[in-house]
Design a protein around this nucleic acid. Structure first.
Ligand SMILES: [Mn+2]
Ligand SMILES: [Mn+2]
Ligand SMILES: [Zn+2]
Ligand SMILES: [Zn+2]
Lengths: 142, 142
DNA sequence: AACTGTAATTGGAATAATTCTTGATATCGT
DNA sequence: ACGATATCAAGAATTATTCCAATTACAGTT
């Protein structure tokens, strides 16, 4: 039986071009993988999934495409410690909570109206261009 | 002429043992380098400075010592994007502001009384064990 | 002080993620 | 269709870090 409830997280059509970047078959496929399964995969995980539809794609191309998408602000690159980079299509300003017991990575939004400068003792004259907030811990029964 | 003002950032004597870790000559020297020049050096930068006093030290030993110090909570390891790890003797809970024009890394304290859960929309039941806050930007004339 | 078991250090090899290089393909504008 | 340009693929190169095996240092103990 197939649910007929509206998809709460619909996948948008992928246009020919995003933010001035030509959306080739490979870039489309990689972007689609990221928005279909938002679990912050590594380049190698994306590579394995991409081969289902593009059997000849190379890992170098996956890296090239991910980098192009990151450079054009279409996806974000996320780093945890020294592990492989992971990739995230959520363009809202957000951080990440890494559940150490399950390995699952959760997106963490800022509460509305918070300003980092209210919370952090920034050096005078600091103009922030990029924020990276990473939390590690576990989820306990609520 | 030598100032006789009290050193605002005195270097403590390094004991034989810290937090259960035997402080060997190499570990002492590496720890001393970190507290003497708090500019978040990489392992290789620590290596180069350590050779002044320990000409036979190896890079593997620098990595070993840094890891031992990190594991025992004596220093912290700091990562920026995919760059080499850097090391920090500041044990206060703090983040980092990376000035992209100069490359200088500034420690950033939390303002007093701030609770991350007030600012972030954490998943229910999240217990935070570690926080990493990294900001990139530039310093403008104030 | 010599002895012994354990931990630490060293130098070099190995690893792994990522980047680079180069030649083949695909796409775009004319 | 043609030439210019962008992208892709395969494999080599790079680089930070870790691993390994052999030596050395250390902390007790005799
Ligand atoms: Mn994954
Ligand atoms: Mn430095
Ligand atoms: Zn995310
Ligand atoms: Zn620091």
């Amino acid at each position: 039986m197939v649910s007929n409830a509206p998809d709460p997280n619909p996948i948008p059509d992928i246009p020919e071009e995003i933010a001035g970047l030509r959306m080739t078959r490979q870039r489309q496929e990689i972007y689609r993988i990221l928005i279909e399964q938002r679990n912050h995969p590594t380049a190698n995980e994306v590579f394995m999934r991409a081969k289902d539809r593009l059997p000849n794609i190379s890992l170098a191309t996956v890296y090239n495409c991910l980098e192009a998408l990151v450079q054009h602000g279409i996806i974000r690159q996320v780093n945890f410690e020294r592990e492989s980079s992971r990739y995230c299509p959520n363009l809202r300003e957000h951080g990440h909570f890494h559940d150490a017991s399950t390995g699952v990575i959760h997106d963490v939004d800022f509460k509305p109206g918070v300003n980092l400068a209210d919370v952090l003792d920034l050096p005078p004259g600091a103009v922030i261009e990029d924020i990276e907030i990473t939390l590690r811990g576990k989820l306990v029964a609520p």
